[in-house]
Write a protein that binds this DNA or RNA. Structure first.
Lengths: 180, 180
DNA sequence: ACCAACTTTCAGAAATCTCTGAAAGTTCAG
DNA sequence: CTGAACTTTCAGAGATTTCTGAAAGTTGGT
């Protein structure tokens, strides 16, 4: 009673609210939160009941989470029922998120920039000149961030060694999560 | 007349679609795109006309962009009309975005984690134990990412070469990350 | 091949987010 | 202080996203 259920509820709630900021639907966020708080794999019925969601919503959410690489479905031999478990290797999970966002955000951006800049080459107006410059700057920035993302993806998210260093530095500088 | 207007239109469109992925409303994204393509500052009327948006929407969008630190309003002396200009220092703009997202996403996450973990201390169940472990892992990851964000914020975001340094140094065993 | 056990799909309902337009508020010149 | 010139606010309209629930589709055992 008490503690565990309360914390689980708040966790589900927080993930439900934060998820959209990450391009994940609220339902998927809630499901993931619930799975995090379970020691065993859970099947669709369990999720429906636990979260008060419909069958369809659970199905959609699980599929979405599987697409993001955040959960795995498993079918115990002898049954037809799929149970879900969250990926507990957080490093891997974070990597899938970065990869997906890169594909959805940076890649189309770069693609368009590369097409737009040449199309402005002919224009003489001041407007065109300014835009051309700004787009070039933007391209530089996006390439830089893209490179950073790639680094993270390849090198196992900022190899733990370096990580600890960064973290301890961050702590020293007092970056306490501020008020509400 | 072709090129410039076409590119501007596509730019406005792309930013309108990408903006929500960044927690920015579509309207604000479109306004920013339009401003990027103008060599001069533009006032609310100009934006209404150029983008076909209502007065209220333009006002909201400009306020939002100002909150993110992506545009500045300026009032030429002798008039009451505010004109807007995009921040062209992209490094600074990117920094505002990171700072805002950190505040909205990581900080509340950490705050909750720090509160939840102690509340599970009393529980004996296997569920509670698993959850406690997972939350601790999560805290570690969030702290790591948070530290990385701070690094970017403090250290003039991505001095293009510096970045590579940061990352490659992180890989190198034992040596402290350079920088300041 | 057939059935029972599950899962997925999808049209319409519901909830949420965004925009409009006009009224109210603010600011400055005179 | 007053009025003109702008900006901000906000209730309701409109658009978009998300959820439900039942029907259709799969799958594995027999």
């Amino acid at each position: 009673m008490g503690g565990l259920d309360d914390v689980r509820g708040e966790l589900v709630d927080l993930w439900g609210r934060l998820a959209p900021l990450w391009g994940v639907t609220p339902a998927a966020g809630r499901v993931f939160g619930w799975l995090l708080a379970s020691s065993d794999a859970i099947d669709a019925d369990g999720l429906c009941e636990g979260l008060g969601m419909s069958r369809g919503a659970v199905s959609m959410a699980c599929r979405e989470l599987a697409d993001w690489g955040l959960v795995h479905g498993e079918r115990p031999p002898g049954t037809r029922r799929v149970s879900y478990r969250p990926v507990t290797d957080l490093e891997r999970a974070a990597r899938s998120i970065v990869a997906t966002r890169k594909r959805r955000e940076w890649d189309p951006m770069l693609q368009h920039l590369q097409e737009w800049i040449p199309r402005l080459k002919g224009e003489r107006s001041a407007e065109a000149k300014v835009l051309r410059e700004r787009l070039s700057d933007l391209e530089g920035l996006v390439r830089t961030l893209d490179g950073l993302a790639l680094k993270l993806l390849e090198g196992g998210i900022v190899p733990k060694l370096g990580l600890k260093l960064l973290v301890s530095q961050a702590k020293r500088k007092g970056s306490a999560p501020g008020g509400k």
